[in-house]
Simulated scan of single mutants.
Amino acid sequence: MAYPSNTPLGRFGIETLEQGPERCVATIPATPLVNPLSHAPTIATLALLVDHLGGLINHCRRGPGQWTVSSELSLEVVPDAVDVLAATPGAPVLGISRPLGRRADDALGLCELSSGGQPLATATVRSFYIAAPDTVAQDWPADAEGVAPGPTLRELMTLDVGETGGAATVLLQGEDAALNNLVGVVHGGISSMGLELAACAEVNRDAEGAPYRTASLRVNFLRPFHSGAQARYVADRLHRGRSTGVAEAKAVGSDGRVAMLGRLTAYR
């Protein structure tokens, strides 16, 4: 299943090959992209695939009249993931998700990502079940006409670099309906990418020598994240040593409220 280009999944080329309560399979192109803040290669798109697959396997286990809301995402990345992606531009990253344990009021999905047979990451997504909202769309909209965004991550995600104030890294999330989920707020995979980009850039800010590469990302979804106005990702560095760095990032919606929290660990 391919998705219209005016959806978050379609914009990044995700295709779902299989979906059901026992297994979901999807791919995303291993397109070399760079962080708009640090200009270094990034693994941020892996978070989008994980959010899709982990949420989907949990969604496929819902009961009648139920809907799912993701509450946590955890991503663990192999040390050479950036190199693997760079070596196979355009090749698909394959993701497979399965249920982990039995479902209750919440459920846990386990994901494994690889490219060309080489492992890239393992991840989990936790979702909880609610009554299906009356306003939720049942399917993605038909493909829209218009000019497609440029090829950079900054253009694809409608991002802009904010003023740091010298103490934090800020990435602005512009308003773009093509980045929204079926409920009409920024897709959780897109916003998880924003947290990764801001946090990784903050770890590397003013650093000398080899770059720090994302090793793990933990995201908590607190409330819907609305783009536009002053919507932004703000990252603060907690630690940077010879080999490791840790940063926290938050997604602040257009209403000024913190919608998501992320913690990133990076290694040289």
Rank of each mutant, 00 (worst) to 15 (best):
G20Y: 11
D206V: 00
N204D: 08
Q230K: 10
T16V: 15
R263K: 11
P8K: 03
D143K: 06
P4C: 09
P41S: 01
P119D: 09
A26M: 09
A229D: 15
W140P: 09
A132S: 14
G188M: 07
R213H: 15
V252N: 09
L46A: 08
M193W: 08
L179V: 03
E22Y: 02
R154C: 12
T45W: 06
V161Q: 08
R61S: 03
A249V: 10
Q173H: 06
L56W: 08
E155W: 02
N58Q: 07
R62W: 14
P32D: 12
L56N: 10
A91C: 01
D143L: 00
A44P: 01
E196W: 05
R154Y: 00
V252G: 07
G241H: 01
E15W: 01
R223A: 13
G13H: 10
A2C: 06
S5C: 03
I43K: 06
A167L: 12
N35I: 02
G189L: 02
R126A: 07
S243W: 02
T152C: 04
P8V: 03
V246C: 04
N180S: 11
T265C: 12
I190K: 03
T169F: 04
A86M: 05
A44R: 06
L110R: 10
L110Y: 12
V203D: 04
T158Q: 12
A235V: 01
L172N: 11
G194T: 05
T135L: 14
P141Q: 00
H187P: 01
I190F: 02
T158D: 14
R232E: 11
S127Q: 14
H226P: 00
G194A: 08
G55R: 05
V69S: 08
V203C: 05
I28G: 10
W67T: 14
H59K: 10
L222P: 11
L94N: 13
A142P: 00
G209Y: 08
F221K: 05
G209F: 06
V50Q: 07
A177Q: 11
D80A: 04
P119V: 00
R218K: 15
